[in-house]
Amino acid sequence: MTTDPAFVAEPTIEVVDTSKWFGQKVAVSNLSCSFGPGVTGLLGPNGAGKTTLLRMISGLTDVPKGRVSVLGVDPRKDHTVYRNVSLVPDEDAVYPDMTGIQFVRYAARLAGHTDNERVEKAIATVAMEEPATRTISGYSKGMRQRIKVAAALVTDPTVLIMDEPLNGTDPIQRAHLISVFDQLGREGKTVIVSSHVLEEVERVSSRVIAIVDGRLAAAGSVEAIRAAMSNIPYVVRVGTDKPRELGARLFASGSVFSVEAGPAMLTVRTSDVISLGNATPKLAVECNASLTSFLPQDESLESVFRYLVERR
């Protein structure tokens, strides 16, 4: 029984010590993790290596170092695996001159399926019955995303890999797609959904693999990732005319890791920006200091990920 949250007990997809680079740029670096039945969120900022990882898993790009296996085989060497694997790419890999139904039917035919029933079912699953008779060139981004998902679902895959499938969807479409992903996960399919938005991944899946700079940043439940993130020392710059007095009081307040006093400015490290924000004005009044600014630094998701990578 594995205890590392980056791995699952019964993997359908295994990524073992995998690296991939483009020229001088390392896209994926010594990454190991696995995916199993259910929905897994692949989280990371733009450029983190999510798309490269998904392309390696789906066999679109080679794996120069390490190993990737899907359903027990190397997807670059065994094309039969695509009977059970589908990819929804991030880019608009659609034929604009085809209608939605033609596109999904084409996907079915390419996999050897001739029955129209499964085409209609896939289109109905993503609620695209009405627009499916129109050409894709007239679709909104959200519609194109849904028709790509339908084309992926039409072969009834065991493994479904989706790269930012919620990009461009409106809230209603997003809620519907999330319920579809959830249902697929409940049916025992391996579903990977990548996103750079934590809240999005949180709604889609209970298990998350977070990567940044091509490396594993965190893995496990959304709660565990959030807990890990809550321990991050955020940096806040506080502008004041009495930095020494206010700094001493802030440090004594308990939720502050460190304080550096500079001319008319304090650099404060804390794990709880909100509490610091509430406490600072009161403490400023106590020491008769005036506040000129309160600027949280480094609070982007990317910086959070970087912290997690460094900590691992």
Partner: peptide, 15 residues
């Protein structure tokens, strides 16, 4: 160029 090639090659057909 329009990235639809992935749509074709990720099917159970020999390349």
């Amino acid at each position: 160029r329009d990235q639809t090639l992935s749509f074709i090659v990720l099917r159970p057909i020999r390349r």
